[in-house]
Design a protein around this nucleic acid. Structure first.
Length: 233
DNA sequence: GCACAGATTCTCT
DNA sequence: GAGAATCTGTGCG
């Protein structure tokens, strides 16, 4: 069934590469590294009984130890944040504003509550299904964290599932690498309360990409950022 | 294209 | 009880 995916034509060349899930070793690294490398990879969903998939084009890292924008700051372990303390590669799914779900990939080793919020996808597979679920034009199917969860039928029922398991209803597959010169960095969305972490340019998205949620005029080239941009302040 | 307001329920204090 | 890692429809230019 997965052999029918449009990702063959999208990702091209090597079907084995297309369907190789990112493993625990990928996720159990720095949250910033994982966020950067998730750009271009493929989020595949079988939730809701119908296959849908999209290429990740926008991400935001959240660091539990010191980042006040993170739900698990400061190392706050509650039933809601429990999944973030688990091993890398698990899904941290939460509910906001009374109506929207959002999806994060847990990073770092077990006990490290870091995660990457997946904010936007380029729709690749199951576009008719997504359109039916969203009742919106294609450009607006996945251009926001709540929207993509709606399009891919991601709900809190999938809380904590293993994204590295190809038999899981939600999996992230390797994609074609994205060069640093194709990435922009900007402040994260909706974290004005986060003190010094409200304005750090930790949101990463693809340049000239029509599928991202918010294009920020203050965005800078990823490769222009000083090395200490990603780390404790 | 942009700005604004309202929706609605979970989580934590 | 307050606030929230958002989305959509509407109105305006």
């Amino acid at each position: 069934m997965r052999k029918d995916y449009n990702v063959y034509s999208c990702f091209g060349q090597n079907p084995e590469t297309c369907f190789s899930p990112l493993d625990v070793n990928f996720y159990e690294r720095s949250c910033f590294t994982v966020a950067r490398e998730l750009l271009g990879s493929l989020l595949m969903s079988f939730a809701g009984g119908e296959p849908t998939a999209g290429r990740i084009v926008e991400v935001e890292p959240y660091i539990g130890a010191y980042d006040r924008a993170c739900h698990a700051w400061p190392m706050k372990r509650t039933p809601r944040t429990e999944a973030m303390f688990g091993p890398g590669g698990r899904a941290y799914i939460f509910f906001v504003y009374g109506m929207h779900h959002q999806l994060c990939a847990v990073t770092g080793p077990e006990g490290t509550p870091d995660a990457v919020l997946i904010r936007a996808l380029e729709p690749i597979e199951g576009i008719d299904v997504m359109t039916r679920r969203r009742n919106q034009p294609m450009k607006r199917l996945c251009d926001g964290p709540g929207k993509l969860c709606s399009a891919l039928a991601v709900t809190s029922e999938l809380y904590g599932i293993d994204l590295t398991d190809p038999s899981s209803p939600l999996t992230i597959m390797k994609g074609n690498p994205i060069g640093d010169d194709r990435i922009l960095a900007a402040p994260r969305v909706g974290v004005a309360y986060a003190g010094p972490y409200a304005t750090v340019p930790w949101r990463m998205y693809l340049k000239d990409c029509p599928w991202v949620s918010v294009k920020d005029r203050s965005a800078v080239p990823y490769q222009s950022l000083p090395k200490n941009t990603f780390g404790p302040r």
